[in-house]
């Protein structure tokens, strides 16, 4: 299965551990991810707050670059997933926007006809690879590991159709395919504060605190996520959450691809596990070693 791969800026920097684990598991799962040549930033939420048409235009450049390959574009970043999809959707829905974007792209010697499908890597893992296949490839079953599946916002909202906006299930099924238990986690699609962590830190820290408390009270050993910003907020800022909220959270926050990698029996250095700010805790390690 071959795809055009759009990593996004975060995955090349603060989320490079995500990239490492994707690189490690892809060949085993039969995924061929060919990185889009010379891609640019999708615009994320920040660009849209300042300029609308420009934001759509820079996003559309990526779609235009990808179109000649006639393959689905896959991204591991939820924000990129949302923005590229939204550009695609509005490009088809609003003729006026389509016209202007067409002119803008033309100025750069590009064209786009709206025929690219943008997908999140979770969608590909769940629908194209599938829990059955992943389960059959598992070398170390993660029996006994209790995982809080944290989807965050921008992968399920606004509705992209591949999972429910309030009660998504795809990652739960993947976690179970590894032998681990996906705990009932009512906060699975609640917001982590996203970029408000930069500008309104206390607010974002409190949102993260709710997420961490929720995962711990559900008896989870770790949180698994799929969004660079969610992972950074919950992982890197966990100590700060503790200070502000007077809590003692100590729960590792992994990417789903890292968890899959562990179950596939890959060494932890290949999966970027050493880059986690919150180290794997004792119970997690025990389960992983025993696995």
């Amino acid at each position: 299965m071959k795809y055009t791969y759009y990593p996004g800026c975060s995955v090349k920097a603060t989320a490079n551990l995500y990239q490492e684990s994707i690189d490690a598991i892809s060949p085993i799962l039969g995924l061929e991810l060919e990185e889009l040549e010379d891609w640019n930033c999708c615009g994320a939420t920040a660009y849209m707050s300042v300029k609308e048409l420009m934001s759509f235009a820079i996003s559309a450049r990526n779609l235009a670059l990808a179109e000649p390959f006639h393959r689905d574009v896959v991204t591991p970043c939820s924000a990129c997933y949302l923005v590229l999809n939204k550009t695609n959707q509005y490009f088809t829905e609003y003729p006026d926007l389509r016209k202007k974007l067409g002119q803008a792209l033309e100025a750069g010697g590009l064209s786009y006809s709206g025929n690219i499908r943008v997908r999140h890597i979770l969608d590909v893992l769940f629908n194209d690879v599938g829990p059955e296949k992943i389960s059959s490839l598992v070398k170390k079953r993660l029996d006994g590991l209790r995982v809080a599946p944290y989807y965050g916002c921008q992968i399920v909202r606004p509705e992209m159709g591949f999972d429910d906006p309030d009660d998504p299930q795809s990652m739960d099924r993947l976690i179970e395919s590894l032998g681990a238990t996906s705990v009932e986690y009512p906060l699975k699609t609640k917001c982590c504060g996203a970029s408000l962590m930069g500008t309104e830190e206390d607010l974002a820290l409190r949102l993260c605190c709710e997420l961490l408390t929720g995962a711990e009270s559900a008896g989870a050993h770790c949180i698994v996520t799929l969004c660079p910003l969610c992972q950074m907020n919950l992982d890197v800022y966990q100590s700060k959450v503790n200070r502000l909220c007077r809590m003692k959270h100590n729960i590792p926050v992994l990417y789903i691809t890292q968890l899959i990698g562990i179950a596939l029996g890959l060494p932890s250095k290949d999966l970027g596990l050493d880059k986690l700010a919150v180290k794997l805790t004792k119970p997690v390690k025990e389960i992983l070693q025993g696995a």
């Binding site: 309030d166 009932e184 009512p186 906060l187 609640k190 709710e210 408390t213 929720g214 009270s217």
Partner: peptide, 8 residues
């Protein structure tokens, strides 16, 4: 908005 068992 929602009904849940999200205990705070």
């Amino acid at each position: 908005g929602e009904i849940s068992r999200w205990v705070a």
